[in-house]
Design a protein around this nucleic acid. Structure first.
Lengths: 133, 133
DNA sequence: CGTTCCGTTTACGTCAACGTCAGCTTTGCT
DNA sequence: AGCAAAGCTGACGTTGACGTAAACGGAACG
């Protein structure tokens, strides 16, 4: 049977993070590893959460923002008020992300242009060299 | 004639940043305002650079990474070695950004799913309330 | 049975990206 | 001339997200 839970070392290797990072995330209530004695064991749920945490970070969300969003992904029994609050938060994040996507697309096309200009310049320079030789 | 250069206050208003930020960027060699006496005057070039800086920041690039990329956008007279170095850097950033875009799209669609699930749950709850009444 | 790994807690250190404050010119206005 | 507003230069403070080091516990191995 494939390991149901990971110890800290396995978890680190699986996600390329340090033990310090995992303990830190636990202290911030982003992860909730169970304990075997005093050692941490990371469950499937922790792995799903960590994946989302790392993704969120890549998009520039703070750990606190991510923590709130994680509630949405792991909500089963929320009260209506809480649920509706999280819902609104998620909608804001969604529109943030869509704006980000539009901007990203613009930035990509501009960067491509610059790269082409750059490539032209380089090929031009190598040509001149050949001619000079 | 429309102002050719902006003083620090105008520059701040135009980009919604603080004077401290502009001085900080200058100290990090991201901006190069000219001086009129001891006061800074921001040129068109500075405005173009600041726009790119702020964009880069939104995508999670560090100021140092951005500084290197700016070299690409304002390169006219670079030596071949330098140009080719910057070119490679730009290509790495481009592929970073394209990977980021793909991930962002995935994240968006997942978040949308969750939001729909959430909306269902909420409408279901309000229905139950109505029935109970 | 010693020691060598893991792992744990506690606590202080660090780095980026500014914020904030003090003290000093310079400029514009009256 | 007087004075407030705007800018300048240090210099120290702050926040988020960890790094790093010290000191300890258990278990596994020769």
């Amino acid at each position: 049977m494939t390991t149901e839970t990971l110890n800290i070392r396995e978890m680190c290797d699986a996600f390329h993070v340090t033990p310090r990072t995992l303990r830190f995330y636990e202290s911030k209530e982003l992860l909730f590893p169970v304990r075997e004695g005093q050692r941490r064991l990371f469950t499937k749920r922790d792995r799903a959460r960590l994946k989302l945490i790392l993704r969120g970070k890549r998009f520039g969300f703070s750990l606190e923002e991510i923590r709130q969003l994680l509630d949405l992904y792991h909500m089963n029994d929320g009260q209506e008020a809480q649920l509706s609050k999280t819902y609104k938060l998620a909608e804001r994040h969604l529109s943030d992300m869509e704006a980000q996507k539009a901007e990203l697309e613009e930035a990509i096309s501009e960067l491509k242009e610059q790269i082409n200009w750059c490539a032209d310049k380089l090929s031009q320079m190598s040509k001149e060299k050949t001619v000079a030789a």
